[in-house]
Amino acid sequence: MLALGAMVVVGLVVASFSGGAQLFVVPLKLCLGLGLCALLCLPSLYVFSSVAGAGQSVRETALALAMGVALIGVLLVALAPVTWLFSQSTDDPLVMGALHVVALVVSATVGVRLVAKVMHALNGRTIAGIRGWGIMFIVVMLQMTTTLRPLVGPFDGVVPPERMFFLEHWAAPAGGDARR
């Protein structure tokens, strides 16, 4: 609930750049996106940690992941005033998109570290492989930002017009008007 509440706040700040329908759509998209990321990566977190010798249950793994996701939300809310400040002083969606991505990667890195610490506490020892899993989690989050585009730019429908990998999307920002 904390993560969802935080994402609503972050969504409002992100959408404040474009305004209009985005103020309603972006918070929903961010809540949905973060939840989907967690759901997609939960099986691999459980199996990777089990293979590394961890003994926690699926429920405990889900709780550890939920704690990490909640921390990501809280950190994004903490960074929201900074990003809002920039959103008021620039009208370039590329700059804003890059800023949000940096904030997301920093928050996700700290969130993954919390997941690793919770796993350590649950098992009484460091569980190998969580960092590798964390990289995958961050990549999935970055892909989700492309899947749910546009987040920063003006409203262009709920579903994006074409499928695209996030690196592909970043590589052609000028042609695609950076609808991140």
Partner: peptide, 22 residues
């Protein structure tokens, strides 16, 4: 063990497959 690791990564792989250019 290889199968279980692959199975756990299947949701992410499916997500990437559905998001890549058709």
């Amino acid at each position: 063990i290889l199968g279980s690791v692959l199975g756990s990564l299947a949701p992410v792989a499916a997500f990437v497959s559905t998001q890549a250019s058709p």
